[in-house]
C-alpha cells in the first residue's frame, strides 16, 4: 500500500528511517519546520535550516525513492523572541518559492502567550498573502484544549480560507471544534504523549474522514515514524477495506496538499482486473 507521511521531521532522523519507510510503502514525507530542542539565537540559523529542509533533505529522501516536501515557519516555542521572529518572517517568502515548499508551518501555539498569538497571526497573514497552505501546531497535554480554542479564536478573527488550513495534533477533546469550524484536522501518533494508533482508528470510525490526516511521530524525542503503519494495520484489522485505507493514508494528504500545485502526487483508486 502506498502511504504518505504528512508530518515528519527528517532532520532529526537517520537514513535508516527512509530505508524502512520505503520498504513499508511510504512514497512521500512532508517536513514542517520545528523546534530544534533549544532556542536558536540568529535568523541566519533559521535560514540555513530552511535551506536544509528545502534543498538537502529532498536529495537524501530521493536515494530511497521517497519524495520530500517541506514547510517553513518559526515554531511557537521560539516566538517569544519577537525580533528574531520578525526577521525570519521577512525571509520566508523566498523559501515559499522553493519547488518543494508546500506552505507555512508549523506555526501555532505552545503556551498560548501574546507573543505566540502575534506570531501565529503574522504567519497566517503571510500565508494568505502568498496563497499558501498553513499547518498549525496545537499545544501538548494539559495546554491542548485551551490552546486549540485560542487558535480557533485567532483564525475566526482573520480573513482565511479554512480549506487551506490544517490544524494538527488533535485528540478526542479538540477534534470536533476543529472539524466544525471547517478546517482540516491532523492526528499525530506518539508512543506516549499524544494520540495512539488505536485511538486514531477510533476517531476515524467516529467522525467523517473527509478532512482528517494521520501523522506518525518523527522527531528528536521519544517518537516512532511507524506509528502510522500501526494505525493502518489497526484500521485494516477492524475490517475496513484497502481502498478505505488508501483514502485516508494516501489520498487525503494528496487532496489537502494538492491544493498547492507543487504537490503532484495524485489520489489512487485500486482496481481489480
Amino acid at each position: 500500500m502506498q502511504i504518505i507521511q504528512p508530518h515528519y521531521h527528517a532532520i532529526a532522523r537517520t537514513a535508516q528511517d527512509y530505508e524502512r519507510m520505503a520498504m513499508s510503502g511510504v512514497v512521500a514525507v512532508c517536513e514542517p519546520a520545528f523546534w530544534a530542542g533549544f532556542d536558536r539565537r540568529y535568523p541566519e540559523t533559521f535560514i540555513d535550516y530552511f535551506a536544509q529542509i528545502s534543498e538537502f533533505e529532498p536529495t537524501r529522501a530521493a536515494e530511497f525513492g521517497i519524495r520530500h516536501y517541506c514547510w517553513v515557519a518559526v515554531n511557537p516555542k521560539e516566538a517569544e523572541n519577537t525580533e528574531l521572529t520578525q526577521e525570519v518572517l521577512r525571509h520566508m517568502p523566498e523559501f515559499l518559492e522553493k519547488p518543494t515548499c508546500l506552505g507555512v508551518g508549523e506555526t501555532g501555539l505552545h503556551k498560548s502567550t501574546q507573543n505566540e498569538i502575534d506570531s501565529l497571526q503574522a504567519h497566517v497573514e503571510i500565508a494568505m498573502k502568498h496563497d499558501q497552505l498553513v499547518l498549525i501546531h496545537t499545544p501538548h497535554l494539559s495546554d491542548k484544549a485551551h490552546g486549540t480554542k485560542t487558535v480557533l479564536e485567532v483564525l475566526a478573527g482573520m480573513d482565511v480560507n479554512p480549506d487551506k488550513i490544517w490544524i494538527d495534533h488533535v485528540e478526542e477533546q479538540t477534534i470536533e471544534s476543529v472539524l466544525d469550524a471547517g478546517y482540516w484536522a491532523g492526528m499525530t501518533l506518539y508512543p506516549v504523549t499524544k494520540c495512539s494508533p488505536r485511538r486514531s482508528v477510533d476517531i476515524l470510525e467516529k467522525y467523517s474522514t473527509e478532512r482528517l490526516l494521520v501523522n506518525s511521530s518523527a522527531d528528536w524525542g521519544p517518537s516512532d515514524p511507524f506509528t502510522l503503519q500501526e494505525s493502518i494495520v489497526e484500521f485494516r484489522r477492524r475490517g475496513h477495506s484497502l481502498q478505505e485505507a488508501v483514502e485516508i493514508y494516501h489520498n487525503n494528504p494528496c487532496r489537502f496538499l494538492g491544493q498547492n500545485p507543487k504537490w503532484d502526487i495524485k489520489p489512487i483508486t485500486i482496481r481489480e482486473e
Binding site: V192, T193, S196, R198, R199, D202, E205, K206
Partner: peptide, 20 residues
C-alpha cells in the same frame, strides 16, 4: 505519570469503542 496516563487513555478508548 505520562506512561500511566497513556495506558488509562487506552482503557477509556476501549470502553468507548465497545459502547459505540
Amino acid at each position: 505519570y505520562l506512561e500511566a496516563r497513556r495506558d488509562l487513555l487506552e482503557v477509556a478508548a476501549l470502553l468507548d469503542r465497545y459502547d459505540r
